[in-house]
Design a protein around this nucleic acid. Structure first.
Lengths: 341, 341
DNA sequence: CTGAAAGCGCTTACAG
DNA sequence: CTGAAAGCGCTTACAG
């Protein structure tokens, strides 16, 4: 038989309202009474009933805003689907979730959109923050106003966030290097196509990749690194340039613009010769894997990222439940032809 | 503003009790009244509030029994942890979850334990069923008594189950073969260490593996298949025999008894020479990967299996919500040194 | 500072 | 067959 506030109230000789106030540290309770109630709750091993709490709290009309720099990036389709799933799961909680999207990584645009959202402040803000001190400062202000801030897919340091939800980018790069090491023999020249040095995750993937090459596979030599700015046209151009100027055995695509890059590979007639490792599993990448152009891809559970962003934020708003860790890393999933789905 | 039964009741000119009875197909409502109520609910786009429903239903005292053939198998530790997580999540629903464990795969023992549990029948039974017609017949009887049956980690055909939760074993074997294909060149001789031909999943892994070898990598030749019966001593013995009788380049361990098998590999001094693919990521297997003895392992999200067994069964008991598919396959996760955790 | 009462949206004995 | 009322376990205006 589970312990309820009614039992605590009886044992403490106070009303249920007072128990509620004491246990939830609400103001206006005599300190001694509160202490007494808390002691009894502890003795009885009281665990609040989350369902009842959620039902009662549904009167509060809480709101979560989600701001994604998703742009044209097909990767974010799955994040969006995860968000939808999460919303369906919390439908009965009376919490409103609104999603806003930006294209590109302009600091000004992100700041402006944040200000716009703050005209009508939500109870929590989930965001893919740009790694810039102005953004970080602004978000810290928001966090100070008792609005929970959750970073999704992209992280920044020095922010008083509830948590980060996304992949461990260093590990992602390391895993890609290890894969390449296992599927090759002898001296190998590799080129890296990253997104932007200004995006922390991209940088971390490059670093993780390079580090494992040096440390575990010194026969693998990183000959060139170029930036696609997550754009297919630029991706095409820089990949083409790279392939024309270097004799490479392998490519590591660790950001957006992969479709452009693959087009360049095909144009150079190198799709049979090159070993290629990518990130994520958009429909196009799945097709490349099925046709053997790409050997493997390292994914990051985008649906889970979207889903967890909603449910973890909800758990915080309803139950003040902090996630188990500050950084909730999703699995770096290695996908090949036969475990694609 | 979400639609509630109160609104439907007002619009239909009946009481909330009657609305509840009509919408939930409970007996004792005039057919015309019921139809009217349902039409209005549909018009208003009514979605029941799951939280309120759960709170009200918590009076029912529902129970889920879980019967695992977990034996000594360290793999099941994670399944158990997943079950614990699921239980924590549904704590407020007033549903009791009890777990029972068997060692080995004796049909008689499983049948006997089932009978024992049915002395005090639960509302749902989650089970790792042995693939035997007597077990299947018994479980079908149980399902006919309005007890939801969920198969976990092991599946059988011809059972009126709510769903199966576990991996796609064929894909698991295919993925292992593809991995081996990618990390090798030229003619390769491989030996397979499986558990038992009587366990459907083991058989499916062998089949998936062999099929991809033949179809995609004809240079890979399966030279020997032996059964460990999921036991380390037998695993040691049959692996040793296999290595003494065949000149192999690679091994595929697709069931329990891996620790024994690896001991044999080491004793033969072949840990540097052989490419080895395993399944699952017990602590020992992680250690083999870190030390380079095992190249990669194909895992099946054991925590998720345990967790989902609890939450999906709960969703059925509380909301009659059927899972989206009859077979809920977990990801076949390829793990290497740098994406192990 | 505290209690009594109403409320969140369902379900369910009970009386008629 | 139907309705009024109590209940699930919390939260919260309101009155004192």
């Amino acid at each position: 038989m589970a312990v309820t506030i009614r039992m605590i109230a009886e044992k403490a000789g106070v009303s249920r309202g007072t128990v509620d106030r004491a246990l939830n540290n609400r103001p206006g309770v005599n300190a001694e009474v509160a202490a007494h109630v808390r002691r009894i709750a502890k003795e009885l091993n009281y665990e609040p009933n989350a369902v009842a709490k959620a039902l009662a709290i549904s009167k509060r009309k809480l709101r979560i805003d989600i701001l994604l720099n998703s742009g044209q990036n097909p990767f974010f389709e799955k994040v969006r689907r995860g968000i939808q799933n999460g919303m369906r799961e919390i439908r009965s909680y009376g919490i409103t979730v609104e999603t806003f999207e930006l294209t590109g990584f302009s600091v000004e645009e992100q700041l402006q959109k944040i200000d716009e959202l703050m005209q009508n402040p939500p109870n929590a803000l989930v965001i893919t923050p740009i790694n810039d001190h102005r953004v970080i400062d602004r978000l810290n202000q928001i966090a100070a106003e008792d609005i929970a801030v959750v970073t999704l897919n992209m992280d920044v340091t020095g922010l008083a966030k509830l948590c980060f939800i996304g992949c461990d980018y260093v590990r992602s790069g390391q895993t890609a290097a290890e894969l390449l090491g296992q599927i090759t023999l002898g001296d190998i020249s590799v080129g890296i196509l990253t997104g932007s040095a200004h995006i922390l995750g991209h940088q971390q993937r490059v670093n993780g990749f390079s580090q494992v090459c040096e440390q575990d596979y010194p026969r693998i030599h990183v000959r060139a690194v170029a930036e696609t700015e997550d754009d297919n046209e630029i991706g095409y151009r820089v990949t083409k340039e790279m392939l024309e100027n270097h004799s490479l055995d392998a490519l590591y695509f660790c950001a957006g613009g992969i479709d452009g890059g693959i087009r360049a590979v095909k144009e150079c007639g190198l799709e049979k010769k090159l070993k290629i490792i990518t990130v994520d599993d958009t429909d196009n990448i799945k097709a490349y894997i099925e046709s053997g152009i790409v050997n493997a891809t390292v994914c990051q559970q985008p649906m889970k990222q979207g889903h967890d962003a909603v449910t973890i934020t909800t758990d915080w708003l309803l139950h003040e439940k902090r996630p188990s860790r500050k950084h909730l890393y999703t699995q770096n999933e290695v996908k090949l032809r036969y475990n694609l789905d």
